[in-house]
Design a protein around this nucleic acid. Structure first.
Lengths: 227, 227
DNA sequence: TGCCTGAGTGACAGTATCGTCACAGTCGTG
DNA sequence: CACGACTGTGACGATACTGTCACTCAGGCA
């Protein structure tokens, strides 16, 4: 159902726990990566840049905080939200975690459902993964794959339509001027007097079906996407 | 230290708790708003549009979920992150909260430090659009989106109407002269003897409905908006 | 009260902008 | 080459927005 190809990295030394977490995440359409120790976790994170990381505090070798530090050091992983999981219910640890910049915290025992929901909550704030994904409302646009999912279903867009939609969706709530759109799609050589933009927008709207209404015209200014 | 004075709304019926939370938030440089029941909370949220909301689940009158729903219904408060606080450690509630879209969850007893850190974590994701928004009374004008909300509902205005209303609302209480308004909308080439301004003002008032009364004419001088 | 001035209203026509369409050109592929 | 997918263009009608005018209405003043 979810075309949401978010990848979640789970770092925990207890294999049973990892299995449980991954099983539940996968059930929700996420792709999972597993690491049974800290160093592997850091390596996988750098290599695959997951959308979010579930990190156990107690680990052999590098512990959770060290892993977290390592992730924050690296430019490639600095912005990935981390959900820290621990057996300890102690407040001191929770504070230390949050202070260090951990994005959320969950204490064992937790229900798998809650974990999935917390991961989802973290992903909600992620603007666009590596700059390659734009997501808002019913739209999910993967710039690297140039594919577009609407309400979970793949819709084939031409490159012009894709750039148009990506521009509007990534600037949700803002009115994007005609000039900006033309500049973004055709560059400086774009012809503002032509009906090109309108035509492509019309073709795009046809493909969006009911969601076309989310793109509104602001007369004399441009267009605005709002979810 | 913080130039960015984020406002946090705290909704809880226990005054001691509110005091404690507010005290700690203020210590960190935040501006706080208090509400001791749900309805007050919703009203304050709509009125002041805080950067984040701390919401107790157990409230007299409207309960936490109802408050949350109300906040998500209103265009003015839809995007404000909510941290829900509850005495119950029960997983079912936590899940229900997260499922409904609550952005974070904290179980009593919690340390004030942790609460502040969690609020900070929520604010991390909030985009800052100060200066782009004019708001007062029932009006909410977003200059970047060029859209206008009245009592939480979107009202479509033409660009002239928008500029007119923005001018008046941003100079609340002041009598803005006809000349100033004409200058602001048409520039120096504006024609003061024309009935244009009156016509646009009339059209604007039609769209404002009952709130049209907030814009008063000052005979021989100009117009004044007062809430 | 009657006059004067400025403000509110409704109708109208001109203009700008938008949505849609048909058509033609380009490009890559089988 | 023929075909289809994609694109850019200009024509056209529909619509939204604007300014002007004539007229009415209301407040202030003698």
């Amino acid at each position: 159902m979810e075309a949401n190809a978010h990848t979640i990295l789970v770092i925990d030394d207890e294999e049973d726990v990892v299995d449980l977490i991954c099983f539940n995440l996968e059930k929700d359409g996420y792709v999972t990566l597993r690491a049974l120790d800290g160093q592997t976790g850091v390596n996988l994170a750098c290599q695959h840049r997951p959308s979010a990381i579930v990190l156990d505090l107690m680990l052999p070798g590098l512990d959770g905080f060290q892993v977290f530090e390592a992730l924050r050091q690296d430019a490639r992983t600095r912005h990935i939200p981390v959900l820290m999981v621990t057996a300890k219910a102690e407040t001191a640890d929770r504070i230390a975690g949050l202070k260090a910049g951990v994005d959320d915290y969950l204490t064992k025992p937790f229900s798998p459902k809650e974990l999935v929901l917390r991961v989802k909550a973290l992903l909600k704030w992620v603007p666009d993964q590596t700059g390659m994904v734009v997501e808002s409302g019913p739209f999910y646009l993967d710039k690297s794959a140039l594919c577009c999912y609407i309400d979970g279903e793949e819709v084939s867009l031409t490159s012009t339509e894709f750039r148009l939609l990506a521009m509007l969706v990534s600037r949700e709530g803002e009115t994007v001027t005609r000039e900006d759109l033309i500049e973004h799609i055709w560059g400086a050589s774009g012809n503002p007097s032509s009906r090109s933009l309108d035509t492509h927008l019309m073709r795009l709207r046809e493909k969006l079906g009911a969601d076309a209404a989310l793109i509104k015209n602001v007369r004399g200014k441009g267009y605005r996407y709002h979810h």
